[in-house]
Design a protein around this nucleic acid. Structure first.
Lengths: 229, 229
DNA sequence: GCTCGTATGATTGTCAACAATCAGCGCGGC
DNA sequence: GCCGCGCTGATTGTTGACAATCATACGAGC
């Protein structure tokens, strides 16, 4: 990221933060299934900590909306209904659309460079035809896209939403995109950035999200078109 | 909200959630100043609980980004730099713009009804010329706007961003809008919704945010115009 | 046979004590 | 006089134990 040899404060992270990220990962990869209850004693033992730090970590995920809390009853992984899927993709569109706008008025060439690297990951994953690898690369691409906006708030929100996206795929895992299409869909985004075509880029990102929702074969009426006003 | 006599599960909330909301409020109204450290023993005593539940609540705010954690050193209220102000308003624009789009394809008349009620609050506050009341009413309007989108994720994000907005106003409290303009700026938003003018509404919400940033007299180059593509 | 009341085991919520780390201060050495 | 060392008080991090609540199973009563 930044210059070599630079002396900067080490980014230490608290126990709660580490556990929270592990929980996020477990939810994302389905190790903790949707709707499942998280027993505190059991989980704490697995992480090798006591219930205190574990509860702090879980409260983070509750705030994110990845866990649902029922007082005196327990914490559960959320399970996504059709309504939630629409909400997740609409929220992603809001975030990523703004990220695109910010990238276009920022350092476009740097953005293209990083996104091209992410494209390589997508190509490798597509060639392997491994669903998990493909989803990982897809997520990495979009996480990079939002990070390049330079807006840490958008970045944090996108991080949560992308975990939820994985939950969507797990819940209704019908119709993944063909490996070739996956690469193509992302490549045109990078090309629009490289070309400086802001309007085209925004239309593409809207279509990207709309297509993703359609692949999950839901009743549509989800994403509005860019205004022709 | 919903029909009278409806039997629905009571929405109980955990101690951590209650404390978290109180902390949010304290930060919003400046009771906890920007940059200030939150001593655990002191705060726990004030809330009348032990440090356990308090720490859980604070971890929620850390996840939200309202608190900054320095391990083994303490938790601090964030302090917003010019860069953060831009980020907050850009994130708000992303969220509220999508909320507007969703409202326009939803139940417009219901939205107009609720927003008109919020307008009443704005008028009363403007007449009182009380800065805090005006900010409260402003926040209530935007919170209502996003809630009407029916997207709980947008709602949660907006809640955090609006607290940060108040922090902005506190930090650089130069140039509040004139009471009359405050009302007018919001009224035209409601009128655009009532008229079904989606394109106009989106332009207005973009201008609304851009104006807010300008009032904080920052170097602009913040918000991109709606694409003419 | 069904419902209500009760007892039991398990889980969550809370707390106070202990361990680890940090900031501030004084002292000795160069 | 200045730098480095170690000590001390205070705060954070973690833990295990206790209290409160919930889910389940069993049995009495109608």
């Amino acid at each position: 990221m930044n210059g070599q040899g630079e002396l900067e404060p080490v980014a230490r992270q608290s126990t709660a933060e580490i556990i929270a990220e592990q929980l996020r990962s477990a939810i994302m990869y389905g190790s903790l299934e949707a709707g499942a209850q998280l027993g505190e004693a059991d989980l704490a033992a697995r992480f090798g900590v006591s219930r205190g730090p574990l509860r702090e970590a879980m409260q983070r995920l509750v705030q994110e909306g990845l866990l649902r809390a029922e007082p005196h009853r327990g914490l559960f992984v959320i399970s996504l209904e059709a309504e939630d899927v629409r909400d997740v993709y609409n929220a992603r569109l809001a975030i990523e659309r703004m990220a695109c706008q910010l990238i276009m008025e920022g350092d476009r060439s740097a953005a293209v460079a990083e996104l091209t690297a992410a494209m390589e990951g997508l190509k490798v994953a597509a060639k392997s035809r491994d669903r998990i690898a493909m989803s990982d690369a897809d997520q990495e691409f979009h996480e990079t896209l939002v990070r390049l906006s330079g807006n840490s708030r958008l970045e944090r929100m996108a991080h949560t939403l992308l975990v939820e996206t994985r939950l969507c795929l797990d819940a209704l895992q019908k119709r993944y995109p063909a490996p070739h299409d996956l690469v193509a869909e992302h490549r045109i985004l990078v090309e629009a950035i490289a070309a400086g075509d802001t309007g085209g880029l925004l239309l593409l990102i809207e279509k990207h999200m709309a297509d993703a929702v359609l692949r999950l074969n839901l009743p549509q009426s989800t994403v509005p078109e860019s205004e022709p006003a």
